[in-house]
Structures are given as C-alpha cells and as structure tokens.
Design a protein around this nucleic acid. Sequence first.
DNA 1: GCGAAGCCATAGCTATTATCTATGGCATCA
DNA 2: TGATGCCATAGATAATAGCTATGGCTTCGC
Lengths: 307, 307
Amino acid sequence: MSQLPTLRQLQFLIALSEHGSFSRAAEAVFVTQPTLSAAIKELEMTLGTVLVERGARGAVLTHAGEAVLERAQRVMAEAEDLVIAAQAAGEPLSGPFRLGVIPTIAPFLLPKVLPTLRIKHPKLEVFLREDLTERLFDGLRERRLDAALVALPYESPLIETKSIWSDEFLFACTPDHPLAGSKTLDPSRLENEPLLLLEDGHCLRDHALAACSTGTARSDFAATSLHTLVHMVKSGLGATLLPRMAVDAGLVDQMGLEVMPFDPPVAGREIGVAWRKGSARAEEALQLGEAIRESLTGSGSAGEATG
Amino acid sequence: MSQLPTLRQLQFLIALSEHGSFSRAAEAVFVTQPTLSAAIKELEMTLGTVLVERGARGAVLTHAGEAVLERAQRVMAEAEDLVIAAQAAGEPLSGPFRLGVIPTIAPFLLPKVLPTLRIKHPKLEVFLREDLTERLFDGLRERRLDAALVALPYESPLIETKSIWSDEFLFACTPDHPLAGSKTLDPSRLENEPLLLLEDGHCLRDHALAACSTGTARSDFAATSLHTLVHMVKSGLGATLLPRMAVDAGLVDQMGLEVMPFDPPVAGREIGVAWRKGSARAEEALQLGEAIRESLTGSGSAGEATG
DNA sequence: GCGAAGCCATAGCTATTATCTATGGCATCA
DNA sequence: TGATGCCATAGATAATAGCTATGGCTTCGC
C-alpha cells in the first residue's frame, strides 16, 4: 500500500487553500512559512502529484489539488468527529452540548427539565437555541447543534429521531363557548368550528390540524406564540387546541378559560429528540432524551413514550 | 481545539482490534510491541479516554474504544481514498482499474474497445470482471470495482450512472418465420409472438420485454447467453431480440438467420458507465465512458449517447 | 504450589522528522 | 530600478517515533 499523508499535512493544505498563500496559511496554523512549505512539498511527494501552483503572487490549487482538498476536508471533519465521539463515549452527557428546542416546547418543558438535568449531569453544559423545526434540523445537519427537541413525526433527510414523550392536545375556549362545560370532547364536534392556531411554520399548527381533521383554521388570524394564542382565545376570537404540557406549566392559569381533554383515543403529538445521522453525539442525544423522559416522569406529569 | 490523533495511531488501534493483542497487532503493522503500546497510550491521552482493557490474555476494546474504532475505520478509508483520488487526478486513466461489464456487453464491446484504449491510455491496466448488473453494483459499493459498464436505466442506491451509447434492438428469426422478409418491423406485430429471452437476472431480458410491450416471453425456455440464444432461435424454438452491438460483432454471422430493425422510434437500451457515489475514481469512470464512446464512434458503428 | 510462558508497561537510547532561523532567488509594482 | 512580497533552500535544533532490554503481572501445566 502506498504511504498515507499526515492529518497535519491535510490541515496545512486546507489552510493554504483558504488563504491563498504559503506565508499567510502558515501564520494561520501557527507555523513558519518554510515549515508549511516543506509539509506541502512532502504531501505532494507522497501523493505523487503537484497540488499547488506556486506563483509570485501567492499559491493556487491545481485541479488535483482541488480534488484532494475536498477529500482532505472530509477526512479532517471525520477525525474531529472521532475526537468528539471519543470524549462523548468516555464520559457521556458532559461538556458543552448544543440543544435546539422548538418554541412550543421550550418555555414549558425546560423549566421542569433543566434543574433535574443539572443535578444528574453536573458536567453537562447545555447551550439552548429556540427555533422552528426545519431550522433546527438545518442546524443539526450543519453541525451547529448536537441534538434538538421537536414534535414528531417530522421526516427530514439525514436526521434521525426518537420519541420520548406523548403530549396530549386539550381543547381551550371561553366559558361562553357552545362547547364549554363538557367533561370531555368528541373531536367530531369540532366540525366547522373555526380554530385559532399558530402562524405557519410552527409544526404545532399542522399537528393540531391533523389531530382534529374536522376542524378548520381561521385564516384571518394566527398567533406567533402560545401565550399570544391564549390571549386571543380569551378575547373571544375563537377556540384552540393546546398541548397539555403547556397547560400543566400554567399557560392558562388565572385566564378564566375552559380547558377539556378529548375522548379517547386521545389526540396529541409526540415529543422527541432528533440528531444528525452519524453524529458523534448520537448516543448522547438518545441518553439526553431518556434523561428528559425520566425527569418528566419523576415530576409526575402525564404522558408516555411510544417509540 | 483539542489535539487530533495521528492516522498512524488510528491504524494501530484498528490493528489492535483485529488481533486482540498488542504483540500480534504490532507484528501485523511491522513495529515492535512497545511502539504500538506507546502509540495506543498516546492516543488514549489525546482522546482523554481509555480505549483498551489490558488483560493478561490480550487486549479488548472498551465501549469508547469500539466507538472510536468505528470512526477510525472511516477516517482511514477516507484517507486511502484521498490518495487514490490524488493519483487519479494527477494522471487520469492510469494504473490498475477494475472494470465490471455485464455479459451481454462484454464479448461484443470489449474486443472493439480495449485495443483503442490500450493505445490511447498505455498506462491504464484494466482488470475485467464479468457479472450481472446487481452483482457488479455490489462490487462498486464494496469498493471491489472502480467502474462498471451496464445497461441503463437501472436504479440502485449509492450508484451513479452516465449513458454513453444507445444500443438498438434488432429482431432475429429463422427465414421461415412469418415475420421474415420485411425490411423493418412494427413492434405491434410482435403481439402474441412468443420470444426467446435470456434467463432471469440478465437485464437484457427485462429491457427487451420493455422494448416490445406486446411480445411475451416463452416461459419454458430461457438462454444463458446470447450465443446459446441465437442457436436456440436457429433450432426453431422461436424468435428473439438482439442488441445491434452483438449483431455488428458477428453474433449471427453464417447462422442463416433473418435480422431486421424496428420501425422508428427505434427501441433499444442505453449502455452506460456506473460508479459508486463519491468514489475516488468517479471522474475517471466518466472519462473511461467518454473514451469508450469515442472508440465506438471512431470505428464507425451505430448509436448515439443521450445522457 | 511453582516454574514456564505469554502479555503488557517502562526505561533508556537512537534515528527520524518536524520545526525554526537565516537567507537567497524571483517575480511584481511604484 | 529599487522596494516589496512571495516561495525555496540550507543548516541547526527540538520533538518524537521507534528500537532493545527488561521487569511485573497473569495464566497455565505439571
């Protein structure tokens, strides 16, 4: 087998391509120009190909250089992943962990979960980012996030998910609403009932609509958050569906609204954890999901994971 | 950023996992046991994790070790690919090249193409493997092949293809066949005509059936090669479709068979080149396809690529 | 039990090589 | 036509990858 290049050499090549000059690239990787020069030469030697065109005004990669660069970047990324995976495997749920959460989960789940997490995994440093599912998934794919808490199902390429919690939908309306007063509610009674929902982009909107296929969304009003949504309900603009998690967290306390569950089979959404396929922290993402489930069960809320 | 491990260290770890003992692994990579021992220790140091459980009867990877191993293998494979890609980019179409060809193409295309290829790319060493499409694609995926010549369309995961040639189908029958004697043939006249075809697994069988949707395959007889197929036609067992490439190569010479083209739009199959997605020699596979197309055009045969 | 054998770790030395400083040649540009 | 900026080369040095020799620790077989 032919001799392999060094990760160091690949790193140098990447720096060279980024800075377009031996001297500046050398500076960027904290070595002197002759060092980088020699390393690139050595790399060209082991590969048997000229990778760089040296000119008086800097260096440009040859065609072969571009081809090697592309793969070098992959190799380096994989190697860095390996380091992260090793640390994660050696001591799971420790160190910085970038977690994305959708806005219809974050304000209700996190206050309950983070304190427990802090106690159980004191070395874990959770960096939170709140955003819509698709943007969180972009973050996972681009390695800006390690995991995300989202509502399932939500298919997306290169993303893997695992459900950790079932979040039941509750019907919320003003006391003078025709459906007010009942203990439980049959979804069919929502027929032609105009529902207030979150604005487009929030997956809760779609899941709520899917949960009661008979209901229709009011197209003239949409809320930007669950908090504004309940205020709109209170002002008499219509009824809505709320996740039990939000209600349990006190979303409608002292609002004077009627809140009632649906008849079984209960409609709802799955809350799950998501990670990039092949991520170095995939295992940790699963463990985090498990930890969150446990912390929810421990504090005695409703819900049960399915898969 | 944390320090990266060395490719050498990863190679040692892989050897260690394969041999289950420091001493034997060291032997396998041609270093002494203390060298490998120190390297693994250094690797554990940079990763901050114990990767190996040392016992009196050998060494076993820890959980973290297994996780790292998996990624180490990926990194090494990528690095080796980089070397190959560099050589390929530096001097395309040179060195050993493992080419798969399906049986209905190989005997007719290769005698025409290989001599030209040898002249145009004298440093290229083509290693041929003849097999059915699916097995060739397996070979591509498992990196046992660099490219394959197959009939398209043929979808398969992780495989990319490019058409290089159109191979028209011709109708072949005995002189006493009802359809014998015509200059060209309308496909609809094959209705209820029992056709002799290759046995299952040959894509030519499927493509021929697709080409004349009206014809039906004789289910009691199937041939194992185009040569036996024409002999079966000659013995009066039925008519068949043959690729023009095979006819041009003399498949039915001195057989006393009638061979006629179809009316336009002419039915046929696309011959193309296939390679593994992301292969280090993807570019060369394309160039090889181009070279084959040129060599076919140069020798003045029929056909034209579409894309 | 008690050597023998096998395994890994350590110590000390050596060869290699990665890197540095100093310098030279060669373009480009004011 | 210097001045400037760029890369290559030379020589010295520090870092390290590798080797030999050896020791401690199990695990067998007797």
